[in-house]
Amino acid sequence: MTFTRRLATFAMASAAALAMTLPATAQQTRQGLSSDSVIETIKENGVIKIGLSIFRPWSMRNLDGDLVGFELDVGRELAKDMGVEVEFVPTSWDGIIPALVSGKFDVIISGMSITPQRNLTVAFSDPYAYSGMTILANRAMTEGFTLEDYNSPDVTFAARRGATPVAVIQSMFPEAQLLMFDEDGASTQEVLNGNAHATMASEPTPSEEARRYSDTLYVPFDETFQAGGEAFAFRKGDPDAENYFNNWIGVKTRTGWLKERHDYWFRGDDWKDDVAE
Rank of each mutant, 00 (worst) to 15 (best):
W58L: 06
W58I: 02
S59L: 02
M60P: 04
R61L: 13
R61Y: 13
N62H: 01
N62Y: 11
N62L: 06
L63I: 09
L63F: 00
L63T: 14
D64K: 13
D66V: 07
D66Q: 07
D66K: 09
L67K: 05
L67R: 05
V68N: 06
V68P: 05
E71G: 02
L72Q: 05
D73H: 13
V74S: 02
V74F: 11
G75S: 06
G75V: 03
G75P: 01
G75Q: 05
G75W: 00
R76Q: 15
R76L: 00
R76E: 13
E77G: 06
E77S: 11
L78G: 03
A79Y: 12
K80I: 00
K80E: 14
D81L: 12
G83P: 12
G83L: 08
V84E: 01
V84S: 08
V86G: 07
V86T: 12
V86S: 02
E87K: 12
E87S: 15
F88S: 03
F88H: 07
V89D: 09
V89K: 12
V89H: 10
P90Y: 02
P90A: 10
T91M: 03
S92K: 08
S92Y: 15
G95A: 10
I97H: 02
I97E: 00
I97K: 01
I97V: 15
A99L: 10
L100H: 08
V101Y: 06
S102G: 11
S102A: 15
S102I: 00
G103N: 09
K104E: 14
K104D: 14
K104S: 15
K104M: 10
F105D: 01
D106Q: 09
I108M: 12
I109S: 03
I109R: 02
S110L: 07
S110P: 07
S110E: 03
M112A: 09
S113Y: 05
I114R: 07
I114E: 02
I114H: 06
I114M: 11
T115E: 12
T115C: 09
T115H: 05
Q117S: 15
Q117F: 10
Q117M: 09
Q117R: 14
Q117D: 15
L120R: 14
T121A: 13
T121F: 08
V122K: 01
A123H: 04
D126C: 03
Y128T: 04
A129Q: 10
Y130E: 01
Y130F: 15
S131Y: 13
T134A: 14
T134H: 07
I135G: 05
L136W: 11
L136N: 05
L136Y: 12
A137R: 09
A137L: 11
A137C: 11
N138P: 04
N138T: 10
R139V: 14
R139W: 04
T146P: 08
T146F: 03
L147S: 06
L147A: 14
E148V: 08
D149V: 07
Y150Q: 09
N151R: 10
